[in-house]
Design a protein around this nucleic acid. Structure first.
Lengths: 111, 111
DNA sequence: ATACTTAATTGCAATATTACGATAAAGCAA
DNA sequence: TTGCTTTATCGTAATATTGCAATTAAGTAT
């Protein structure tokens, strides 16, 4: 055992869970925030901003790329990264529709 | 190595990451959806709904409780769980404020 | 060609997560 | 009390994640 039993759950549930997993690390949050605040492609200087080693950053970038939420284009020797706004908006919409469900019972809960 | 270097990141970044981690599993998504749709306390029958063993469900419930997003009250032999609306709304607000940042550039991105 | 720069990949160690059988704890019923 | 029900915890195995040194790959320069 040890592996998640994805077969037990719906496609939507697995999708939302893996989206959450994509941002479930402070380094990946930090990377995304940098890309968002810069609002342009960022080439390389992510390694100096965060305090992690270059292979570690590269690995986190790979995960974010696989999740689709960022994209990278080769620019000579370096690689430029930026947010993929389509996927970003998809994330926003799905998280929002998940959390909006409880809007009604703002009171004290039931127990 | 192997442990996340939380000291490198801001409190907000670590908080958002751990919030994401709390829902980064389809079983925990499923549990939360059940609690939301029921809109009342649910005693025990979570084990039959999902296809996981009782200790596994109990462990996921513990994680959700530690994240604060659900609460459980003992009701005789069984335990009743429900959403904690305060924390739930906090999650909603923080995820929303994270994702809302890119609203402007709905176009094609920059690379 | 050689040297340099930048990023990805490999390989490995440390730690974390997921899952469940076995057991324990806590309440209720006879 | 004993037995039953329900949930939590313990212990352990399988798998996943995190992090980085070392290396590779791929481009630019000289």
């Amino acid at each position: 055992m040890g592996a998640t039993k994805t077969a037990l759950f719906s496609k939507k549930q697995n999708e939302l869970a893996s989206m959450a997993k994509a941002i479930a690390h402070p380094a990946r949050i930090a990377i995304l925030q940098q890309l968002v605040s810069a609002n342009t492609c960022i080439c390389g200087d992510l390694v100096e901003e965060l305090g992690l080693a270059q292979p570690t950053i590269s690995q986190h970038l790979k995960e974010l790329k696989q999740a689709g939420i960022i994209q990278g284009t080769v620019e000579g020797t370096s690689v430029c990264y930026c947010i993929n706004p389509l996927i970003w908006n998809k994330y926003r919409a799905l998280f929002n529709s998940f959390f909006v469900a409880v809007k009604s019972l703002d009171a004290g809960g039931c127990c």
